[in-house]
C-alpha cells in the first residue's frame, strides 16, 4: 500500500520531464527508467535533509538507534550533515498507552501506522490531524492514546513505523527493533492464504 508521499523513490522516465514516484507508478512495456541519476540522488538527499530538519531526530538518544529506516537512508545516501536550519519544533510524547509510546519528535508522517491500523488491523484508531507542518498522527478524536476505545493494542503500528516514533514501552536507546516481517506474514496469509514465515 504505497502513497507516493515521501518522494524519496522518485525516478526519471525517458521522454518525460516529470519525475514520478516508483511506488505508485505502473511499469509499462518499453519504459526506460533511470533510478540513480546525479539529479535524483541530489534531490533524495535534500528531501532527507528536509525530513531531519523538520522534527527533532536525535539518533544518539533514540530507541531505534541502529535499527532506523530514516537513519539507514541517511547513511545510504551519504548524508553527512543537514544543510537546512533545523526547525526544532516543540512536540509531545504520548506515553498514556499501557504498552506503547508515541514520540512526535521522531515522526516522519509517512502514515504507515494509519494505514496498517485501518487496513490490516481494521481498528481505525490512528489518523492524521492538521495540515502542512502542523500535521500530527492522532488516536481516535485526538485523544491520549491510552484513552482510545478503538485501539486493540495489537502493536502493528509500532512495527510498521520506520523510526523510533512508535515504540514499545520499556525499551531504551537502540533497543527497539521493528519486525515488519510479521506484518507481511499476516497480510500474505490473509490475502493469499499462504502461511509463509
Amino acid at each position: 500500500m504505497d502513497v507516493g508521499a515521501c518522494r524519496l523513490c522518485l525516478v526519471e522516465i525517458a521522454g518525460s520531464n516529470k519525475l514520478v514516484p516508483a511506488c505508485t507508478t505502473q511499469v509499462a512495456d518499453g519504459m526506460v527508467v533511470a533510478t540513480t541519476s546525479e539529479r535524483l540522488q541530489r534531490y533524495r538527499r535534500l528531501l532527507l535533509e528536509l525530513l531531519f530538519a523538520e522534527r527533532n531526530h536525535v539518533c544518539a538518544v533514540c530507541v531505534s538507534n541502529g535499527h532506523c529506516e530514516l537513519q539507514a537512508l541517511a547513511t545510504n545516501l551519504g548524508m553527512d550533515h543537514v544543510s537546512f536550519p533545523y526547525t526544532f519544533p516543540k512536540l509531545e510524547v504520548d506515553l498514556t498507552h499501557r504498552l506503547f509510546g508515541m514520540d512526535h519528535n521522531r515522526c516522519v508522517l509517512c502514515g504507515r501506522c494509519v494505514r496498517v491500523c485501518w487496513y490490516v488491523e481494521g481498528a481505525a484508531t490512528k489518523n492524521f490531524s492538521g495540515r502542512g507542518a502542523g500535521s500530527r498522527i492522532i488516536s481516535d478524536l485526538n485523544q491520549p492514546w491510552g484513552e482510545s476505545r478503538t485501539c486493540t493494542a495489537c502493536g502493528k503500528c509500532v512495527h510498521a513505523c520506520p523510526t523510533g516514533a512508535l515504540f514499545e514501552k520499556g525499551t531504551t536507546v537502540g533497543e527497539m527493533q521493528k519486525d515488519r516481517g510479521k506484518l507481511e506474514y499476516i497480510v500474505t496469509a490473509r490475502e493469499k492464504k499462504q502461511w509463509i514465515v
Binding site: F52, N56, V58, C59, A60, V61, D80, H81, V82, Y86, F88, P89, K90, L91, N105
Partner: peptide
Amino acid sequence: AFGDCAVTGNVTALRNPLG
C-alpha cells in the same frame, strides 16, 4: 565538525524546542 553535537546539535540542542 567533529561528532554529532557539532554536526546536528544533538543532545546539546535538546533544549532548543523550549524556545
